[in-house]
């Protein structure tokens, strides 16, 4: 069983390494991740929002939906933990079910 798991892991790693052959090199300024919309953010975010920290500007303004549902996600996590685990101390004896 462990040998099978190790084999699967190694095959997955090999496939991923083969996939990185087409990836841009480390620190390349012309990589696809930093050419399309991020150039617009770097150039215009300070003019449009007056926030010097670009990460905060993108987080709070341009990607506000993402951050809003992020808050909802962590709120739901707290709700789920309480509803799964919370119990009163008095019914400790018969809480094994």
């Amino acid at each position: 069983m462990k040998a099978l798991a190790l084999f699967t892991t190694l095959v997955t790693g090999a496939v991923l390494l083969y996939g990185t052959m087409d990836f841009p090199a480390f620190g390349d300024p012309q990589s696809p991740a930093s050419t399309h919309i991020s150039a617009y953010f770097i150039e215009e975010a300070v003019h449009e929002t007056h926030v010097p920290n670009l990460v905060t500007a993108v987080l709070g303004d341009y990607r506000g939906y993402d951050t809003m549902f992020e808050t909802v996600v962590i709120y739901c996590a707290g709700l789920a933990v309480i509803s799964v685990l919370r119990r009163k101390k008095s019914d400790k004896e018969d809480s094994r079910s």
Binding site: T49, H50, V51, G60, G64
Partner: peptide, 15 residues
């Protein structure tokens, strides 16, 4: 424009 900056601040306090 200042409201866009201040709105980010309000939202951050909520978060």
């Amino acid at each position: 424009i200042e409201w866009r900056s201040f709105g980010i601040f309000i939202v951050e306090v909520g978060v």
